[in-house]
Design a protein around this nucleic acid. Sequence first.
DNA 1: TTGGGAGTTTAAGATAATGTTAAATGGGGG
DNA 2: CCCCCATTTAACATTATCTTAAACTCCCAA
Lengths: 226, 226
Amino acid sequence: MELNDIKVLLVDDEADVLDFMKYNLEKEGFWVYTARDGMEAIQLARKINPHIIILDLMMPKLDGIETCRELRAMPEFKNTVIAFLTARDEDYSQVAGFEVGADDYITKPIKPRVFISRIRALLRRLEGQNGVAKLVVGGIEIDRERYLVIKDGKEITLPRKEFELMNLLASKPGRVFKRDEILSKVWGNDTIVGDRTIDVHIRKLREKIGEEYFKTIKGIGYKFDA
Amino acid sequence: MELNDIKVLLVDDEADVLDFMKYNLEKEGFWVYTARDGMEAIQLARKINPHIIILDLMMPKLDGIETCRELRAMPEFKNTVIAFLTARDEDYSQVAGFEVGADDYITKPIKPRVFISRIRALLRRLEGQNGVAKLVVGGIEIDRERYLVIKDGKEITLPRKEFELMNLLASKPGRVFKRDEILSKVWGNDTIVGDRTIDVHIRKLREKIGEEYFKTIKGIGYKFDA
DNA sequence: TTGGGAGTTTAAGATAATGTTAAATGGGGG
DNA sequence: CCCCCATTTAACATTATCTTAAACTCCCAA
């Protein structure tokens, strides 16, 4: 998941806290949305489908705990990361928060560095869960943990690049990946490799997995199809 | 998309805010147009077809929300980036804005650095979507992500130029594209190809998609119609 | 009715883009 | 230090796609 696509919903009734967090997150390239209270937060969340929601505990209308509970009750937010924002000496017990499904507690006052790295840590968790270890696509199973592809019960080991290429293409079956997208995602933005490198790896995959799965879109790139 | 070609439409009733934004954007190489209220904004937008529209929330005649709603109702602005400009403590909820299809909120007072990077971020998003992945026009579906045209459930793969031509024409059904417009959009401003090249590609599309969809406007160009 | 402009169609040649193979490179483990 | 394997490169082969030329059709106006 690109950092550029990450949407964070901040919920707090204090405008300056909101702005401060927003400023720091935007500087890092996140998409930031804000709401002033729980009701607004829920409405907005349904519109924008954020990846992370940061909820202040004390809010008018609907407090953080209640908001969180309501969000968690909706299936679309089952896997959204939700964190609470709390003054250090606010004597709400954290227990209540975790009970309603919070993923983390962040204490005020907010220090930018700490705050950002906290968010990043939460994101890693998010990636961890939806970048599942196993991916099954049309009879082919990709085991990211063991770097294996399993087809018809047979385990096929792939070298790193081949595996990453396979993994990229199979992550969205049917979708065409442009050559430069493949280059930047598998080889990295900085590395410069020759024009034929991708083709050679595709060729190896075709050999090992099967010709029929890898389709060439001339002038554009490749796609994986089952 | 070259930065040089990016057109930004700023809409605000306060002249100094307008000037300030204009100055900063022009310094960065954007083409900036301005309007004082929603009515003017809509008229101007239809003329210049901007990539981004920045709407002040509070405006005479037609406020930001309403303007946005009207713009979004027109097919040509379906994919335009629209952002709202709002005073920090204006307690309009963001919900209303996102409901009418806003892409972002920018808070006043405007800080040049932040403002510019926000605009750039919005542009990246625009490029990313590159128009929506799927476009459905009268029983024909164009799947840009999979590089497919689907008609009556049948998947039709098109070579690159044909696909791009198809995509261009179908992006505004009914609208006539002049031959030189087609040339510059599908082939690029620099490449020099004969006039007959377009016809040949139209021919192939007629073969693959159906004669009836591609209408010739003699002396002008072609249009796609369902 | 006829000539010309504009578009259509076809097929063939030109031109990219990709496929393939083999050999060079380069890094880690024995 | 060497060997093995993954990776990359280089050279060449093989397409798919693009472009063009040329013959053909159609419609309109003289």
